[in-house]
């Protein structure tokens, strides 16, 4: 069954004056948690703003949750939650007042907004600090309250712009766990814009790489990381030249050898390769410690997409 798109664009071009921020982009963002990757200035934030109906495209069109981004900005913003990159709050408000107000702005009746504000603040780990003025919050708490105001009205799509900005390692892990728990199995889709690849890899299933206002690559993370020809990594107890000779004699191609790890490519299925590797190891008197299908890192896939 094909995946349903939560957002699409068709030949979308967005310009700021004479500067083209997005150039003729056609894409489909599937359900689930999607990472929007790209270097600074790639057009990630612009794409999010276009999805919210903030920008008038110079050309092309787009939809979010089936609604046209040019004609239905308000309806889109009612169904979407934005966690902006910058610190943002409403001065003079307590956390619970702020989140309830965000809920009311989204259209929740005031009593429900207040009740729900308490709920999401608990969920985001701010239950104890809910009556404190947001201006007194630490950076980590401000990030959490941005998430709380984005999810208060139960959006179907979350737009998270650099959600781990300014967080220490522990805070970053907590924030990513929060995002993962909201976006997996709860019916909430998310687009996570970031230039931090480990963050995206931790929470997303699918990525879209933007650079210079164009889509450079998109797909499931595991597919992007997959290498051509299904090579395998074989880890031996210790390096063995005899093992290398044996696998080459069996018709395999030795792609790399780093300490005791050999990357081998053989025609045929990985199961057949495994059998060949075991035979070669036996013949070479080498002890196999590990065997798995080789894949590149997301960083390598990203650099390749950027043409680096």
């Amino acid at each position: 069954m094909g995946r349903v798109s939560v957002a699409t664009t068709s030949n979308l071009t967005v310009k700021y004056g004479t500067f083209t921020a997005l150039s003729d982009i056609t894409l489909e963002i599937p359900e689930g948690c999607v990472g929007l990757l790209g270097p600074n200035g790639a057009g990630k934030t612009t794409l999010l703003k276009a999805f919210l109906g903030f920008l008038d495209p110079a050309a092309g069109s787009g939809t979010v949750l089936g609604l046209d981004i040019q004609a239905s900005g308000r309806e889109i913003r009612q169904r979407v939650g934005l966690m902006p990159e910058q610190d943002c709050h409403i001065p003079g408000m307590t956390a619970v007042g702020f989140v309830a107000f965000a809920g009311e702005l989204a259209g929740m009746p005031s009593e429900q907004a207040l009740r729900r504000a308490h709920e999401v603040l608990e969920y985001c780990g701010l239950g104890e600090a809910r009556y404190r003025n947001v201006e007194t919050y630490s950076t980590g708490m401000k990030q959490r309250i941005k998430l709380a105001q984005a999810i208060v009205h139960g959006p179907k799509l979350l737009l998270l712009d650099e959600p781990t900005n300014g967080l220490d390692p522990a805070g970053r892990v907590q924030m990513l766990d929060l995002i993962r728990s909201v976006t997996h199995g709860k019916g909430v889709n998310a687009i996570v814009s970031s230039h931090l690849l480990p963050d995206v890899e931790r929470v997303c299933d699918h990525v879209l790489v933007l650079a210079g206002g164009k889509v450079r690559s998109s797909g499931l993370i595991k597919e992007l990381k997959r290498l051509e020809g299904h090579p395998v990594d074989v880890e031996l107890r210790e390096a063995s030249e005899e093992f290398a000779r044996q696998v080459e004699a069996a018709g395999a191609k030795l792609l790399s050898a780093e300490r005791s790890v050999y990357r081998i490519q053989m025609p045929g299925l990985p199961e057949e390769t495994a059998a060949q590797v075991m035979r070669a190891a036996q013949a070479a008197g080498a002890q196999v410690r590990g065997f798995h299908v080789a894949e590149r890192s997301l960083e390598e896939a990203f650099m390749e997409a950027l043409g680096g």
């Binding site: 308000r74 309806e75 913003r77 009612q78 409403i90 003079g92 408000m93 107000f101 009311e104 702005l105 989204a106 259209g107 929740m108 009746p109 429900q112 729900r116 709920e119 999401v120 608990e122 969920y123 999810i151 208060v152 009205h153 139960g154 728990s181 909201v182 709860k186 019916g187 909430v188």
Partner: peptide, 29 residues
């Protein structure tokens, strides 16, 4: 209490006339 995330499935008012929500908040402050 169940502290895991639950989606909001209550009513949402039509996305118009938000000025009154803004006005109320300024007056309250």
């Amino acid at each position: 209490a169940d502290l895991s995330y639950r989606s909001y499935d209550g009513p949402l008012l039509p996305p118009t006339m938000r000025w009154w929500v803004v006005a109320k908040s300024v007056m309250r402050l």
